[in-house]
Write a protein that binds this DNA or RNA. Structure first.
Lengths: 180, 180
DNA sequence: TCGACCATGTAAACTGTTACATGATTGT
DNA sequence: ACAATCATGTAACAGTTTACATGGTCGA
């Protein structure tokens, strides 16, 4: 979906914590931030170039081994300013979260439709796995406790994600039980 | 985001219930289906043309008043087949639901950040309103009861949406309370 | 040496939003 | 008459995905 260049702020936000390469930034979407946003390297590399042109980030070359060069990006003070401005900007719009399964379900008219049970159980598996995955993340990153300092936001969104998956699981289980 | 042409199936799904104009289909995203997907008329009209070219839908002209012509679209048997195939296709991927507020929260490091409270209360207002809106929808459409026939999927997703907003609200309230 | 992973890039196609454009109907 | 709504379309732009393309490093 054509959003408001949120990816730009994600990159600035991540670089505000530490200097990273495009590859590192790409990987960040496989874990942490991946629970809430997705992006491919083919989108990230060009954007990094643009952000550098705009003076929001800068890179230095680092060589690994014999000749493998990486571009280690860091945020500039202008970049920090833009990030801060973004954080201070209200977020007044709730965007419909586009869930393909929910869409299909919308078009199932009858409780007796034989498609219903396999669809629901498939989703239950997916959401149970996601739930367990998030639990593990919480254990690994925060040892199930609210951090006394730092990463408070990260803790909060992980907590929220877990509650969300729990709700999704519970609802699916209830609906499946009720099919009989 | 570049998805898998989900909009196509939404249009087919809606036209499978009854014949509609492009304008009607556009309006459907303001209510019902709008809780789960968004689309503008500028995306819908060209897609309707394409679907007609592909033989999935057909239109007849209906004249209102003196000369206002509307195109009343209906689904063809080929269209029904494609819709059915889609409904039978597994939905094995959970896509990250992109929530800008959650993204911002991720970058708030300290519990003491003065930004935190206004951000959270802004979202609480939004989600409370959404919750109340969904409750009203449920009352209007289903009178708070599971339908004995028809629209079972619609009922389910509305129920799920309400539970989801309830969770979101509860979480926000808890976090705000805990700020003191 | 070989496979997994590190590392960076581009191109094409697709999906989605915002803006531009026009005209008719209906109810007050 | 006027405003709100009905009704349909295109153009430009922005964001996202998939595929193409290349080469280096590290550990078993």
């Amino acid at each position: 979906m054509a959003q408001k260049n949120n990816l730009k702020y994600i990159l600035l936000g991540l670089l505000n914590e530490q200097s990273l390469t495009g590859y590192d930034l790409t990987k960040a979407f496989d874990s942490d931030i991946g629970e809430f946003w997705s992006a491919n390297h083919s989108q990230i590399y060009p954007l990094l170039k643009k952000l550098e042109l705009d003076g929001l980030i800068a890179h230095e070359l680092v060589t690994t081994g014999e000749k493998l060069e990486k571009k280690l990006y860091s945020i500039t003070s202008t970049g920090v300013d833009e990030l801060t401005t973004w954080l201070h900007t209200p977020t007044p719009d709730l965007n419909a979260n586009k869930d393909e399964f929910i869409l299909k379900l919308y078009f199932i008219d009858q409780k007796s439709d034989p498609l219903l049970r396999p669809m629901l159980t498939e989703q239950l598996t997916l959401h149970t796995n996601k739930y367990l995955h998030l639990q593990t993340q919480m254990k690994n990153k925060f040892n199930n406790q609210m951090p006394s300092s730092n990463n408070y936001g990260h803790f909060l969104i992980l907590e929220h994600a877990i509650l969300r998956e729990q709700e999704y699981k519970n609802w699916l289980e209830k609906v499946i039980d009720n099919l009989d």
